[in-house]
Amino acid sequence: MALYILRRLLAVIPVMLVVAVFVFLLIRLGPGDPAAQLAGDAATAEDIQRIRERLGLHLPIHVQFITWFGNILQGDLGMSIANNRPVSSLILARLEPTLMLTLTTIIFVVLVAVPLGAIAAWNHGRWIDRAVMAFSVLGFSIPVFVLAYILIYVFAMWLGVAPVQGFVSPTDSLYRFFAHIALPVLSLSTIYIALVARITRATVVETLGEDYIRTAYSKGVRDRDILLKHALRNSWVPVVTVIGISIAALIGGVVVTESVYNIPGLGRLTVDAVLASDYPVIQGLILVFSFTYVLINLVVDITYAALDPRIRY
């Protein structure tokens, strides 16, 4: 086991290296002159050249990469061009809202989707099953921003039961935190509820067909006990996997959700940085998101290996 964990940890290095090279090249080869943006309306060509030199943009590209990569290893992600602040401090300041939004969403998704999937499986082929599956296909097909606008319109504007926008830290007020996060979580989670419900259903259906369940039936074990003790107990495997996979997609949803609900998180920062061609921030964000994604999948894999004796490592 220890060897397996070590091997998986080492495997993170090449992945992150690929990400780093890719991100650097991609962004540095891009158009747009950050120096001219900084200089603003009344700048002369001379001003722009001075700024270029200050930012090191006049150096050869491989020198820029080595400097950049060396700095990253020391935790220095560079300076934001648009804001003239360290990228790391920008990212840290925006971490909490995104973390709270994704965590609440994941918890909400698991709480809703697993029972939904199980109920559907238990009623395999009946109308409940069909309804759940129909909802799941539907939920899969509605773009998150369309859903977000509908929710704002209905709950915030029409019924007036939820705030329109913003974020409140749970350490300030737990109540206001939930009030503000409710609509974003609903918008963001729909697609994942659809996904996780489908997978739970599929697994439970499969498990219910397994021999040992049939045996349990024939022994006269009660229905409810079979569902809870046997069928559901195995369903964590796909659920954990899906959480690992969908973290990446969830991040995409976060970008949209944070923009619509004005949550000052990493997603908003991403959109702002892209619109401002703020290269260092885009680079930093991709690195941080990718690193998080890789780490989560590492944890998922290890959990998987630790919990399921059938998986070889």
Partner: peptide
Amino acid sequence: VMDGLMAIPAILLAIAMIAV
């Protein structure tokens, strides 16, 4: 290389590529 690409969230990767 594929692992590296997969580690970057699809939308972020797409946005960055379009920017370039």
